Amino acid sequence: MIIHQFDQENSLLKKFISEIRDVDIQKDAMRFRRNIERIGEVLGYEMSKTLEYENTNVNTPLGVKKITLPTDQLVLCSVLRAGLPLHNGILNYFDGAENAFISAYRYHPNGGDDFEVIVKYLAAPSLEGKTLVLTDPMLATGKTLENVIKAMEKHGTPKKIHIISVIGSRAGVSHVEKVFPKETQLWIAAIDDDLNSKGYIIPGLGDAGDLSYGMKL
């Protein structure tokens, strides 16, 4: 897997990351969602540099200009519900992309810390020969993305796979490396060192879905 980690260099992205982590700023759900969206825009722009391009002509009022434009057929797939703001940010830049949505949640069968990831809903176009972009803001254990890619196998084989995440753990990134094709590219704003006993990233930011859309039962 090719990993693009962006908290190793100084850029405006660090401001957005700091605000989504800040417990006081987190109280403003609209600002939290918008910062996740902006991170998606930045990471989507960086990803665009690796796509395939071809020459085309653009007619202006005064002549013709040759320019290279991306040719990849993108399918953006987000994990509900936390992935929606990140999805919107990427879609702002790739407005011609097809879209897919999948539900995945942690199920604690015995009420303890151990859990399994359950996938119940998937709406997706054909992936055959296309570029699949999986978006999940929190790459904690990596089990969610593993189950997502397995669930999508019936929709065809993508030509390329990109993963876009906001914050991950080293353990989660390592797990995804093992279960995804080696040519997969991960675009991630920050990687934290630890997970707690419940599989949450430390220091992380908490539950991205709850911070975006409110607490759930």
Rank of each mutant, 00 (worst) to 15 (best):
I2Q: 06
I3K: 03
Q5M: 05
E9I: 15
K15W: 03
I17V: 15
V23N: 15
Q26N: 11
K27G: 00
M30S: 02
M30F: 02
R31W: 01
R31K: 14
R34V: 05
I36T: 10
E37P: 09
G40L: 15
E41N: 07
V42K: 01
G44H: 07
E46L: 13
M47N: 10
L51R: 06
L51D: 07
L51W: 01
E52T: 14
E54T: 10
N57F: 00
N57K: 06
N59C: 06
N59E: 15
G63W: 12
K66T: 15
K66G: 01
I67T: 13
L69I: 12
L69V: 13
P70A: 00
P70W: 12
L74E: 00
V75K: 11
L76Y: 08
C77T: 13
C77G: 05
L80V: 12
L80T: 13
G83D: 08
L84M: 15
L86S: 06
H87K: 01
N88I: 01
N88L: 06
G89N: 14
I90G: 11
N92K: 07
N92G: 10
Y93W: 01
F94N: 04
D95W: 10
G96T: 06
G96N: 13
A97R: 07
A97V: 05
I102P: 07
Y105V: 06
R106G: 10
P109T: 14
N110T: 12
G111A: 10
G112M: 01
D113F: 01
D114I: 12
D114G: 05
V117K: 08
V117W: 06
V117H: 02
K120F: 06
A124W: 07
P125W: 07
S126D: 00
L127H: 04
E128T: 09
T131Y: 00
T131R: 04
L132V: 13
L134A: 14
L134Y: 02
T135C: 11
T135E: 08
D136P: 07
D136F: 03
P137D: 05
K143D: 12
E146D: 07
K150N: 14
A151Q: 09
E153D: 14
E153F: 03
K154Y: 03
G156E: 04
K159E: 13
S165Y: 03
A171E: 15
A171M: 15
G172R: 13
G172Y: 00
G172M: 02
S174V: 04
V176T: 12
E177R: 11
V179H: 03
P181F: 04
P181M: 02
K182T: 13
E183S: 15
E183V: 08
T184E: 00
I188L: 04
A189P: 07
A190K: 13
A190T: 03
I191T: 12
D192L: 03
D192E: 02
D193P: 09
L195T: 07
K198W: 07
K198I: 06
G199D: 08
Y200W: 14
Y200H: 13
I201C: 03
I202V: 14
P203E: 02
L205V: 01
G209F: 00
S212K: 02
Y213P: 09
L217T: 07
L217G: 05
L217P: 11
